[in-house]
Amino acid sequence: MKLPFVFVLLLLLALPAPSDAQTNLASTNAVRSFPTRGLVREKPADGKTLVVRHEEIPGYMPKMTMELTVKNTSELKTISEGDLITFNLVVNADDHYIDQIRRIGVSKETNAPVAAPAQSHLSELGPGDAMPDVELLDENGKQTRLSDFRGNAVAFTFIFSRCPLPDYCPRMNKHFLSAREILLQNKSGATNWQFLSISFDAEFDKPAVLKGYGNLYRSGNNDRWLFAAIAPEVLAEIGPRLDFRFSREAGGFSHNLRTVVLDSKGRIFKQFDNNLWSAEDLAKAITTAAEVR
């Protein structure tokens, strides 16, 4: 009886009373507060922020490294890089801060060697490399694999349907449309080719969404141009190898452009790494890649 009681008391005392902040702020609209633990990766010279690798914040954020604004800068006095801390993350619709920063120890990791930078870089795929097979969920709700198109030259690129920048996803779509026109109109040309527009926003780009989105660009003809989505865990494996990168930002994504042409044997034939290429360039690459037997 006594022992558990002491433990409960210990817990109550040990917790830095985040409940106060929670109740004070709960009265303000849509302000939320999360008691969190993390490792101080950096203490920027401005004295107003901390770069913290924090634990998962259930219901709000996975574990990640973030630069956080410190409310009471005096709390930073005793904090150094490498410290393990507890703190309270307070967020509303357009702002955040942390307070109640407590140092609880020093990370054991600090003496660990810094890992070799970007393993993904070492294993980046280039022309001639076999493209690993990748499973997608297509606009018809069907599981589709890259290998399903073996025997065809394949051009794929990464998009998301909510993409607002005209020179990004929409430009990729327009290039695909024009390149397809060039290929379709060449009556004596190859017919073993396929275009694939792959959404990396699988959560939002469900099959029906993608079909509607694709139809906006395909001008009533779905011939050899499929829209599909890639699951986050699949993308996490293949994305780095193609140097395709993105991050969530302000309700959308910031991303780079990677358009890949595979030959009919499923090897990488050509990679277009930004948006400074033309539909003609793509059509030409497809034509050559389709001839590989």
């Binding site: 690798r53 490294t65 810094v114």
Partner: peptide, 20 residues
């Protein structure tokens, strides 16, 4: 600094503080 524990979904390729 490059974060050793880089999450793929970060454009920065693991560099911490790219807005500096």
């Amino acid at each position: 600094r490059r974060d050793t524990n880089v999450v793929y979904q970060q454009f920065s390729g693991g560099f911490v503080g790219v807005d500096k």
